[in-house]
Write a protein that binds this DNA or RNA. Sequence first.
DNA 1: ACGCAGGGCGATA
DNA 2: TATCGCCCTGCG
Length: 329
Amino acid sequence: MKTRFLIDSHEYKGQLDLDLTINSGQTSQPAWCYKDEYFQELVSVEGNNCLIKAKQKYKDLDAPLEIVAESMEDIDEESIRSSVMEIFGLNDNLNALNDFLMKDPQLEPTIDFCKGLRLFKAHNPFECIIASISSANCSIIRWNRSINDIKKKWGRDYKFKSGTFYTFPTPEILRNVPEHDLEEMQRFEDHLPNKFIFDKNLKSCGVGYRAKFIIKAAEIIENELILSNMLKKSYEDAFNSLLELPGVGPKVADCILLYGFGYKKAFPVDVWIGRIVSKLYFNGKEIKPPKARIFGMEQFGEYAGYVQLYMFHYARKSGLIDSIKRKNL
DNA sequence: ACGCAGGGCGATA
DNA sequence: TATCGCCCTGCG
């Protein structure tokens, strides 16, 4: 089945910069592959895997969003549309957000730098959890590569004209993956082919010491059905239950809640957000992450997630980041 | 080359 | 309860 439709800018509130949204390094999933003018990714819609291709028809933040969807099964166009709206944050009212930002002199300057920037929501919450664990103490390109490696090695492959795409493996698959090459080798016992290359273990995906966290987290998630219960929980309960997962501390938990489950009041504080908050709201006096998190949640309320996204992008683009290298805070 | 950045964890006081 | 050294890899 192949479906093509448009989402017009009057169907959502505010603008959309698709490129910026996909490539702003949000900890939900790796950036979508860009090919033949479309951003492309394999997404599960109503349990069917479906290639979604997205582009803005012309270079304008109010341009209609063109969607092409390809799948084996027939999938209701409305379902695809609502998945796309969710993934690209099109249900968020950026006009209201701008009104909020405008009232705060520290945030008002972010508006010009972040036009059309939306929360890039995870299409697969489990992938988002593993991506967030992988992202700890790690650069964006590195965890992006790790997640793509994991998909290639243990996901199901789907071939389309524009290339081969992979699902993210389920928790039951990932929990059984060898942690390192030694373990991979041991599983072959004495059937080891000569000249064998050990590249189907977690460490070979560049996740480093996080490999055991990932395997253990996959095991806990499979056993305890964290995913389906998550949305019924209050933010605080969901936060605390995520902290039970190995490799998940406050920052990673907030990323999972924000990008994976849509809790917009989450305010993930990494070193940069910590420094930016210190600079903008505490005269440069160093505020430690736990305090910065509470401050952000109280100060920005339901907009906290967006404020965090906008602050970081603004700081990168405006040169603020260069001026807050720790020494001259 | 080689030292540092990045978040979480477990040990320390 | 706060602080510190370590985990792994890419980059300057």
